[in-house]
Nucleic acid binder design. Sequence first.
RNA 1: GGCCCGUUCGUCUAGGGGUUAGGACACCAGAUUUUCAUUCUGGUAACACGGGUUCGAUUCCCGUACGGGCUACCA
Length: 514
Amino acid sequence: MENRRVRVRFAPSPTGPLHMGGVRTALYNYLFAKHHGGDFILRIEDTDQERFVPGAEEYIIEALKWCGIEPNEGIGFGDGAYAPYRQSDRKPMYREYADQLIHSGNAYYAFDTSEELGEMRKLIEAAGGTSSYNAITRQNMKNSLTLSEDEVKQRIAAGEPYVIRMKIPRNEEIRVKDLIRGWVVVHSGQMDDKVLFKSDGMPTYHLANVVDDYTMKITHVIRGEEWLPSAPLHVLLYRSFGWEAVMPEFAHLPLLLRPDGNGKLSKRDGDRLGFPVFPISGNLQDSKTKKMESFTGYRESGYFPDAFINMLALLGWHSSGNQELYTLDELVKDFSLDRVSKSGAKFDPEKSKWFNQQYLRKRTDAALAAIWMTELKTKGFTPDPIFVEKAVRLIKEKAMFANEFWTLGSFLFVAPEAYDAEVVKKRWNENSAKFVAAVNTAYQAMTSFTAAEAETLFKQTAETQAIKTGEVMQLFRVCVSGAAGGPALFEMCELLGKDEVVKRLTRAVQTIKA
RNA sequence: GGCCCGUUCGUCUAGGGGUUAGGACACCAGAUUUUCAUUCUGGUAACACGGGUUCGAUUCCCGUACGGGCUACCA
């Protein structure tokens, strides 16, 4: 068993967009698989026909692709030897396994209607009881344990709806070994006879997941902590099937918590607190209301996929050192489940911005220029790539996101129409106007126009006019760019070029005066 | 309610029987800067509580509190 090739799966259900918590689960599965040179599989768990959302599967696939954590097997990524990878496509096999459990006495048919179940729960609650369908109560319900064999056959033959339930042993300690939490012990008396096979002919998650993991030779089940309570049931299932020797190891990941207060991160938190909860934007039905809902993604908010992944990786996992910036390869190399924290991690949108900024700074000017170029073209500009690269070099240190470039540097492409009112009010007077005009005249005579030369001439002019540079520097900047802040003044003058600067100064002197 | 899981600065976390409890984000202050930003330096800030065990517990054990998850013919 220890020699088996590592195979893990990410098994979302197509009931909506995959949110960042799901992406993190996928990421940890990916990292674990790659770290061990194993397989990372995408399996679609669509056993709930009611909540199926068209397009959700495609969304999941696209999201994983954008994140750069592509499965090497499964839906959307090429079938391996264990196809199909969509549970609805595997439908016929589950019934056989359910039957197997019935024959071995580990499961039974149950005919109770939902009304009858509701009544039973009410009775138990009234009596102060806790569990529902279990070793005690099933004796009073309509199932193949209480009904005669003939009646059971009759009911089935008559087409009466039924489910197949797990027959949980009455008095047994079920031990689950969790790679992150250690041994978790649950008494079978507290578990109930979960439905394994639904009356619509589909298995429930519990059955399908165990059967699939077994048949797909999954070695490690890495999933969210919300599955921990049902892990004992899954262990029991493996035991009942006689698959204990090849049962996967379990690792239940701590939950991603919302930034404010407590509770797990949900899709509503994004709108409420103003940060993306989903990897990519989209528009999908709500699984319950069936109404179309659009949602915003990290991609569309300007995040780099590698920054997003890095941030996510550190939410619940940390190596022993102080390193925080990891490439995917480094994550693969360093990742291990035993360094995953036990407690939930509150998501901090501020820090995720910081991660993006770090990645923006790691990008080359050429790469950033290419991103900006795309935006510039949609705005109708066709600038010289060299110019854009120089421009990006000037403004990038102020940006956390590439989508801030335009706000930061539009003046490099469009002459200002308005001038910062506060600076004008404070600094514009007869002397300063004369000074700006004088610099403009001096610049016009220049044959070479570098930042250093422009600065020298600027200072000389100031000296001649007996004016302190500090008093006119910002006004001069406003004349050129319109804004009070910005990149190094003479650097941007050089990039704009003499003619453009002269043009702008001329216009500024006229406009502001008026 | 029952069951399960958890608890180190505001947040993500390192650490681990004897430490000035470390780093990062955020925040604050100073320096640099023509501006904004960057950068640099410094600072505020944490072992939930109570019992054990021990020469010594933040670290190990138990309890309490608090938080979270689950409790569907949903995953």
